[in-house]
């Protein structure tokens, strides 16, 4: 059900895209079989975090309520895993 899904929003703004966000947009293909259906992958035109230095560096991804800065595919997958463990008690 949608309500239980973990929402992942990948920023596809200019800065994020060139700093590695282009790879992150392919997250759907990288998700382990067991996680599919439990995660919804979306993109945003710009999360706005690049304009605030205190947020860290691009690329940015929002996983649930948490912001991930300087995201890489392994770091993103690790965070999703942790969140799934937390929220779904897996």
């Amino acid at each position: 059900m949608d309500g239980e899904k973990l929402k992942v929003i990948i920023c596809s703004g200019t800065a994020c895209f060139v700093m590695g966000g282009s790879e992150l947009l392919l997250l759907e293909d990288e998700l382990p079989e067991a996680w599919r259906g439990r995660v919804s992958v979306e993109a945003a035109p710009c999360l706005g975090s690049c304009k605030d230095r205190s947020c860290g560096r691009a690329p940015f991804v929002k996983v649930g309520v948490e912001d991930l800065a300087g995201a890489t595919m392994p770091a993103l997958l690790a965070l999703i895993g942790r969140k799934l463990g937390e929220t779904l008690g897996g």
């Binding site: 282009s22 392919l26 759907e28």
Partner: peptide, 17 residues
């Protein structure tokens, strides 16, 4: 609301919405 279509994402240009 702006919705991004995550289909056929190109590596050189960010997706359209």
């Amino acid at each position: 609301t702006v919705t991004i279509v995550l289909e056929r994402v190109a590596r050189d240009v960010p997706p359209a919405s």
